[in-house]
């Protein structure tokens, strides 16, 4: 599509970021990040199917500091997308769309994302040691 040099109406850059708009774009970004991270999940399963040796290799990579960082980022993205997704499903039912409720549920999403992500990792360290 050729736009030439036609003037464009002001876009995102003229708006002050707000909790609602920031969570909205993060929802998409975290969804895409979760998709990309799912490649690691499939790689992990394929490694398990291909034998002990290769599985240990993948496990030691995922257990390294870089692997743990990737997994932590993936957990965070997934949990955020899950929590905000539930918020979106509630909206899709036509509920909770008032400004005040939308801000309250937005803050709840942040709190739950942090609690669940840290809780999962705390559980993992408690079960598996360092």
């Amino acid at each position: 599509m050729s736009r030439g040099n036609r003037p464009l109406s002001p876009h995102l850059q003229v708006y002050r970021p707000q909790l609602t708009s920031v969570l909205s774009i993060l929802f998409r970004i975290m969804g895409v990040a979760t998709s990309v991270g799912s490649i690691v999940l499939i790689w992990w399963l394929a490694a398990a199917a291909s034998g002990a040796e290769y599985f240990e290799l993948v496990q030691s990579f995922l257990g390294s500091w870089f692997g743990r960082l990737l997994l932590f980022g993936w957990t965070f993205a997934l949990v955020f997308h899950l929590c905000n997704g539930i918020r979106h499903l509630y909206w899709d039912a036509g509920k909770g769309l008032e400004l005040e409720t939308a801000y309250a549920s937005g803050k709840a999403v942040i709190v739950f994302t942090v609690i669940i992500t840290l809780g999962l990792w705390g559980l993992a360290y408690a079960v598996g040691g360092a």
Binding site: L120, W121, L123, A124, V127
Partner: peptide
């Protein structure tokens, strides 16, 4: 996610 967290170190 909870199953995998519980399997850490397996």
């Amino acid at each position: 996610v909870f199953s995998v967290a519980l399997m850490t170190g397996a």
